[in-house]
């Protein structure tokens, strides 16, 4: 090579440099805060694991088939909870979804309120809702249904409103032009566009709710979570193995069919 000229250095504005330095500093600060703050009792944990590993893992891997009947019944209850909860949410999310859609509610303000309510609902973890409902309606599966229902409204309402906002208004206009009335427009203009997607989202939410409802029992809201709690407290790891297997199978099967149905609908 005859020349050894290096390219000019890239021009970076002083603000960009400060911004970058600031971001790096913040990230470092977060990590320092995290690692200084967290207290892990390594000695105890290591001592426990060395004692438990050889006992718990082999037992988990050899499920206790004598509990099959009980586990199946419990898993079925989990499915009931998820189904009833999702169904309720799918209906209850309708008004909220329309409210939060700007093209339906007509005003930015109302849509904003709708969106705020929905995200507020989403901020509550399912299990916290379950705790509240257990206090309210007692230790039973219906508390789980309510927790799932309320928990799902937040997400379904948001997804619904996005669907509604994407409605093709040209079809609606064309109908108005042919002299159709409001009800006719709703049934023939809006619904065909939104129902398949609404259904698809509701089914998708059912997938999530199956997972969610399998842990509700930990706070007394029914389903297989109750058995998980007992199995853990009594250290019945063989039984836990079967419960795990049941959850894995049911979730996988439901995911599979749900994906197929959704592909067919949309």
């Amino acid at each position: 090579m005859n020349t050894q000229t290096l390219p000019p250095k890239p021009k970076v504005s002083i603000w960009k440099k400060i911004k970058r330095a600031l971001i790096v500093l913040i990230i470092i600060a977060i990590y320092v805060w995290t690692f200084v703050g967290i207290e892990i009792e390594w000695d105890r944990a290591l001592e426990r694991i060395s004692r438990n590993f050889g006992v718990v893992i082999p037992k988990l891997l050899s499920p206790d088939w004598s509990q099959l009947g009980k586990v199946s019944a419990s898993m079925l209850e989990t499915i009931f909870i998820a189904f009833a909860g999702t169904f309720m949410a799918a209906i209850l999310a309708l008004p909220l979804g329309f409210l939060a859609a700007q093209n339906m509610s007509g005003s930015k303000f109302i849509a904003g309120i709708g969106k705020w309510i929905l995200s507020a609902i989403r901020a509550f973890p399912n299990l916290i809702l379950a705790i509240l409902f257990v206090v309210a309606v007692g230790v039973n599966a219906f508390a789980g249904v309510l927790a799932i229902a309320i928990g799902s409204i937040g997400m379904l309402g948001k997804l619904y409103s996005e669907v509604v906002e994407s409605i093709d208004m040209k079809i609606v206009e064309a109908m108005e032009a042919t002299g159709a009335n409001k009800i006719q427009i709703l049934f023939y203009g809006y619904l065909p566009q939104i129902i398949p997607e609404f259904l698809s989202y509701a089914i998708y939410r059912f997938e999530i709710d199956i997972r969610a409802s399998s842990i509700l029992g930990l706070v007394g809201a029914g389903g297989i979570g109750t058995m998980i709690l007992f199995a853990a407290n009594n250290r019945e790891w063989n039984e836990m193995g079967l419960i795990l297997l049941a959850i894995i199978i049911v979730v996988t099967v439901i995911d599979f069919f749900s994906a197929r149905i959704r592909r067919k609908i949309v």
Binding site: I38, E39, I40, E41, W42, R44, A45, R48, I49, N52, F53, V56, L60, L127, R211, A212, S214, I215, L218, G225, I228, L229, A232, R235, W237, M240, L244, I247, I248, V251, T252, D255
Partner: peptide
């Protein structure tokens, strides 16, 4: 990965608490 995704987080926590005892480590 597919199997991992079917197990709810809290169930994993229950198992890890069983293995490591109560504390933040099983949670993490």
């Amino acid at each position: 990965l597919n199997i991992l995704r079917t197990i709810p987080d809290l169930v994993l926590a229950v198992i890890f608490v069983g293995l490591f005892g109560i504390g933040v480590l099983p949670g993490i």
